[in-house]
Nucleic acid binder design. Structure first.
Lengths: 107, 107
DNA sequence: TGGCCGTTTGGCTAAACTGCCAAATAGCAA
DNA sequence: TTGCTATTTGGCAGTTTAGCCAAACGGCCA
């Protein structure tokens, strides 16, 4: 694989990797309906340590998937990408495929 | 987060994680144009150890993203999911957004 | 059968990732 | 200033992942 191709797929993988965690997928999903949420709200929903949630948000931000805005002492995050809904739909269709195939194997 | 939601996002993450590697993204891309390829062809293109490529294929297969068919002594892999093209397009748009933002910061 | 080719599996080490705690930072209000 | 809240950062232990080598497996052909 030539270096240019390698670099391109490295860059893509970095973005996909940022989404490759249940908590981060959940966050992206929560933010996907145009709603912005602060860290404490997300922390409450997720039920983990706030530092953990903050780091997950940092990963998503580093990949350019979300952006933040400070208002007072709170930080609000929102999606920076509009196509994630399709992305999730695709993942969901894979899941459905997998279930269908498993049922076929049992039948 | 209630257990059901947790399980749903765990399942999604498992699929996204399977794609979260440059080599595996490359493989998925190669297989995305309806073409099936055997392990040796992919190994040649990627330039890694065949055992490494085989393991990557195993990860993709485990996630239900590709399927395999043995013909003689060779194993051919092909995509099992049609929506990956949109998936890649979304990732690509994130990359473009990021570049645009970086340029804006410099200007 | 023996040998070769394509593929997978086991094992090992190095690197990356997670999640918690504790500490640092920043804003706001008394 | 002090104190309180929201958030981020540093650090550490446990877990997972990556990629190579060696070995095992399976099909094919002489």
């Amino acid at each position: 694989m030539d270096p240019k191709t390698q670099a391109r797929f490295d860059a893509r993988a970095k973005i996909v990797k940022a989404l490759a965690h249940p908590t981060r997928l959940f966050i992206a999903d929560q933010l996907s309906d145009q709603a912005e949420k602060c860290v404490c709200e997300l922390t409450e929903m997720i039920g983990a340590d706030m530092s953990t949630v903050s780091k997950h948000l940092s990963v998503l931000k580093g990949a350019g998937l979300i952006c933040d805005e400070k208002r007072g002492s709170q930080v609000y995050y929102k999606l920076r990408v509009c196509c994630l809904t399709d992305f999730f739909a695709c993942v969901e269709s894979v899941l459905e495929n997998n279930v269908a195939q498993q049922q076929e194997l049992l039948a």
